[in-house]
Design a protein around this nucleic acid. Sequence first.
DNA 1: AGCCCTGTATACCGAGCGGTATAATACTGA
DNA 2: TCAGTATTATACCGCTCGGTATACAGGGCT
Lengths: 191, 191
Amino acid sequence: MDNKEKILESALDLFYARGYDAVGVQEIAESAGVTKPTLYYYFGSKRGLLETLLEKEYAVLRRALENASWYEDEVPDLLYRVASAFIDYSVEHQKMYKLMMALFYSARENEAYQAVSPIVKDIYRRIVSVFGQAANRLGNMNGRQDQFAVGFLGVINHYILFAAEKEDGRIEISDEKKQSLVNQFMYGIFS
Amino acid sequence: MDNKEKILESALDLFYARGYDAVGVQEIAESAGVTKPTLYYYFGSKRGLLETLLEKEYAVLRRALENASWYEDEVPDLLYRVASAFIDYSVEHQKMYKLMMALFYSARENEAYQAVSPIVKDIYRRIVSVFGQAANRLGNMNGRQDQFAVGFLGVINHYILFAAEKEDGRIEISDEKKQSLVNQFMYGIFS
DNA sequence: AGCCCTGTATACCGAGCGGTATAATACTGA
DNA sequence: TCAGTATTATACCGCTCGGTATACAGGGCT
């Protein structure tokens, strides 16, 4: 693993554990075994480092979402695949997912929020589009895609967050739980 | 308004806008029109200031939850009252509610998270207890109170967040929307 | 009067912040 | 061998951080 990747890994660990603002560039460099100018050589600024980190890691989630979003079958299956894409990603990239969530909820004028904002917008655009596709099959959803997208992601995120709350830090959400999560949502939609 | 309250107000404004770690004590003091030693005289430390702020503001929400949590009627009415307690509070104390959310999602080893953690635990305890009461009427909920509490608050928080996303920053969630949110949840429970 | 307690300001602390100027090393291709 | 580029380190910049030592003003008490 070269220095650039070591820096990214250290940055993720530290941002995840203590937050973007609470971690200094010096500390990231030390943790990666390099000096500050090396870090600045690769990323230009602390914010540049965060943005590079976010873009690199988000590419994986975006691909997973693209792969999950085809809709030639039933709506519950579509939602199940999308929910699974999020949950599976959050299991395999736990630190990244929780970092993204933390940044998403952070203050609007904060530098870190502004860095993550385009990614979150992209995610929501994709979820709204998923519900838009589902609307073709479920007439009674028309005009409520935004509302469902918000609720859907809200539930998923909170499940992920609380699943990770177990003392060993390991995220685990069973297939049954995913299924019941989707079912809960489907019933809500048909109401 | 005395200096102590001025400091608390400035702290809320700044923490809300830019985040706990990104705001310095100096800046809070200046914004409140006092000097740093005055701030330290009242609150002892930056963290002490945050804790005082959180406790003072949370007292209002806790009372609203207590008032909403009686259960002599139907379950949907109970949930509607609880959801309304959150939503109404978030409208009247928007900065505080969003600050609490931001802190809740922030990194676990961050000082600010540790300050808000007991409050969030208290909120969840109360919501789980609400669903526990509902379980007396809805036999099929037994053992799933935690799951529902997580989902319920997840949906509410995301609604609040996205209602506030409108350009003017004003939160507005109509009674119909509250009702449909609760309905959506009830259908999920009966599934 | 003298005294204590509350509240406030001036001036300072060491440490760390994000960022950079400069230069030395190492690897590359000609 | 040499030029050029990519990568790294030493040493520094001005600034802000959270926090404090000290002193002083004012009011209530005896």
